[in-house]
Design a protein around this nucleic acid. Structure first.
Lengths: 150, 150
DNA sequence: ATAGGTGAGTTCGGATTCAGAACCAAGTCG
DNA sequence: CGACTTGGTTCTGAATCCGAACTCACCTAT
């Protein structure tokens, strides 16, 4: 088997930011529209120091941005950046997996196509062939940033 | 080991299984074809006890299965179950996010459509409207398993 | 003006968890 | 035989996480 090591894998880079339970739950809340420190804290029942630290990290890495929404007293809210919004396929995938395998067929929340209200699906798409397909039709090959050669 | 959270949300249920860094890296390796204890350990440079514990948990939860591949001496390998395979959209999404935002435009690995070799995309699909769309066209509503509303 | 409440943090111990090394067992190879 | 491999387990000190309590700045009602 060829050498496929951790360092040049984007998954481990992503996990450097998202790699703990709380961070992902914070982002889930952010997608639901939660923006303020105290709202995150109450909803997650997360300890304050942990929330402080996670929010700071997410802001540093560019996933959230901290915006003043009240001058006196200074109050900030945390909003998803474009980079943060781009995580939605990952969160949706996690949620659908949980729905399918962990909640006995009763999904607590259903995501729908805004335009028509019908449940959405998530698929891999090939724009060349112009068709959708599943994980069984995926292959991989080294990309431009590949460093190791087998 | 704590089973946190009554999941008002399938994401937190998923995170109960996947909620730490090592677990996801183990699954990433599993998708790449790694199957044996010692191969996981070497590739991830993870401490043995941690790997033992994570593999055991993944087997208990049904994400991996432990199969005898050698009778004398008894040797086992860890393979993705169907439930484990179903995580691929989540891992693919994570990888693509890392590619796009964390690796300066140089993706270490590119996923392609096996049939034609062209890079794949990941999209939301509505089978009613028969069209693909992005995260900006998603809405959510309570599903059959909704208990607490927020 | 003062007492109480709130939003956003910080400080500080104690409990987990982790890494690293040593140890074990069962078998194989030289 | 003795060395080596795979797949673990047990131990221990170090790093990390987390919750409770405290702070600080401001607002509101009395």
């Amino acid at each position: 088997m060829k050498e496929t090591t951790a360092p040049d894998c984007s998954i481990s880079a992503s996990l450097d930011i998202l790699g703990d339970r709380w961070t992902i739950l914070i982002l889930r809340d952010a997608f639901r529209g939660v923006r303020r420190f105290e709202d995150f804290r109450r909803d997650l029942t997360i300890a304050r120091p942990v929330l402080t630290e996670r929010l700071k990290r997410l802001v540093e890495r560019g996933v959230l941005e901290r915006q003043l929404y009240c001058e006196r007293p200074p109050r900030y809210e945390y909003r998803l950046t474009e980079m943060g919004m781009a995580l939605s396929p990952a969160l949706v995938a996690l949620m659908r997996w949980g729905d399918q395998y962990l909640s006995a067929g009763d999904a607590p929340t259903v995501l729908v196509h805004d335009a028509c209200g019908h449940p959405l699906d998530q698929q891999f798409v090939c724009w060349e062939c112009d068709e959708t397909f599943t994980q069984y039709d995926i292959a991989s090959r080294p990309g431009p940033g590949a460093s190791t050669v087998s």
